[in-house]
Amino acid sequence: MLELVVFSTLNGLQYGVLLFLLASGLTLIFSMMGVLNFAHASFYMLGAYLGYQITRTIGYWPGLLIAPLAVGLLGAGVERFCLRLVHRHGHVAELLFTFGLAFVIEEVVVVLWGRVPLDYRVPALLDFPAFTLWDTTYPAYKLFMLVISVAIFVALLLLLTRTRVGLIIQASLTHPNMVAMLGHNVPRIFMMVFGAGAALAGLAGAIAGPALVTQPSMAALLGPILFVVVVFGGLGSLAGAFIASLIIGLVQTFAIAVNVSLNDVFLPLGISLPAPAVLGDLWNATLAQLGPVIPYLLLVLMLVFRPTGLMGTRET
């Protein structure tokens, strides 16, 4: 039992911090521009594909550096040359733009790399079991993912709270006009934040590529859960995004480990459903089977009872 708890915690944390790498950029962009960037998960996918391509030509470690930078540049370019123009036509146009961009990126990826999952391998240097507990091994690469993601979180937190750049970014989140009055170039700040967010997504892609599967559907698989994290954590709150990422990661992992169904809960109370009832499937489904739905349920509940999210200050 303890073994299951320990490993579920590790797996959940690792998935959670990966989510955070993506959600951090998304939540900053969201709160700054007021637009949900539907293409954010696509930057994650681009990071994985570029990482793969660079791994094949130069090596894994340069790829880990170059791929996020390239994705970041692309993100900045998208903001500077497209989103900024679309911005004049209001939020709906921006939303539609990012929505379309997600499809364009997916199709471009399919044209360039094909539909079949890529053979993106864990680098030999990290391809060993990190430690063994109750004769279950934990792969070093996963530990590496965990460490990198936590390091990025700490760095981001320091950057935003301890530096001048961070102060300006925080100020432009809430009072963009005032910041502009003070002589700062707010559009450039937007561009930098968008680029940095994309770069973080790209980094997440480059480190997740070998562990998860690098395929054209990887953006669509992760996209919806990101929005859950951002809304759940609260707009513009990095700490909120961090906590939400961990909660979602842990909830999803632990749900799989639990074999309890509604039937098991209510049977001891003397309540049972007549055997072949309409709702029989739902009644007997275990939490493990319902696992994928739980984050969305949490999202709905959060929006009903606390629309600002866990640590947000504004209404979504």
């Binding site: 299951l4 797996n11 959940g12 599967v213 990887m218 799989i256 480990a257």
Partner: peptide, 23 residues
């Protein structure tokens, strides 16, 4: 000791399931 159904072709990391099988 266990009986599990998971979403089809959607899971990219089976570690949680393996942890459960192990336990």
């Amino acid at each position: 000791v266990g009986d599990e159904l998971h979403p089809v072709l959607k899971v990219t990391d089976f570690s949680p399931y393996i942890a459960k099988i192990k336990a």
